[in-house]
Simulated scan of single mutants.
Amino acid sequence: MGYAIVWLVNTILSILTWSIILSAIISWLFAFDVINRRNRFVNQLADFLDRITAPLLEPFRRIIPSLGGIDISPIVVLLLINFARILFNRMSAPYLIAILG
């Protein structure tokens, strides 16, 4: 059971990491007019990724000013997610595995 919880937490953190990266890439592709928002699939994908990542990014977007039009809040959130992953794997995961098996 402990291994399953550790796997689940790591998987959720990985999905959050990849969704932030994909959202940033899609926003760059929109900004440079490589892809177009009129494409229904692309628009739905961008909207889905925005709905997933916005609750994580918005508090940091309010605090961190944009640097010349560049939003660095995804970088800060990615660093914090990786910090949380390392902290969980080093401190909590061994106890969960020892207690729950």
Rank of each mutant, 00 (worst) to 15 (best):
S23H: 13
W28C: 10
V34F: 06
F32T: 13
F30Q: 03
L49W: 01
R37H: 13
L13E: 05
N43A: 12
N43P: 00
Q44Y: 07
L45S: 10
I12T: 15
I12Y: 13
L45V: 14
S27Q: 10
R38L: 12
A46H: 11
T11C: 07
N10S: 07
T11K: 12
L8R: 09
A46N: 11
S19K: 03
L49D: 01
V9Y: 03
N39T: 06
L29F: 10
L29T: 06
S14M: 06
A24F: 09
F30K: 02
V42H: 01
L13S: 05
T17V: 09
W18M: 12
F30N: 01
F48R: 09
S14H: 04
S23D: 09
L49T: 04
S19A: 15
I20N: 02
W28G: 07
L29W: 03
S23F: 10
I35L: 13
R40Q: 12
L29M: 15
S27Y: 07
L8E: 08
V9E: 03
L45F: 13
D33T: 09
S14R: 07
L49N: 03
W28Q: 12
L16W: 06
I26D: 00
V34E: 00
A31M: 11
F32W: 11
L13W: 02
D33R: 15
L8A: 15
I15H: 03
F30H: 03
D47N: 11
L45M: 14
F41A: 14
S23Q: 11
I26S: 02
D33K: 15
R40H: 10
I12Q: 10
D33P: 00
R38E: 10
L29Q: 06
F32Y: 14
S23E: 07
A46L: 08
I21G: 04
I12P: 11
S23N: 15
L45E: 04
N39A: 08
S23K: 05
L29A: 14
D47H: 12
F32M: 08
W18E: 02
L22M: 14
I21E: 01
N36I: 00
D33E: 13
V34P: 00
W28H: 09
I21R: 02
S14A: 08
A31W: 06
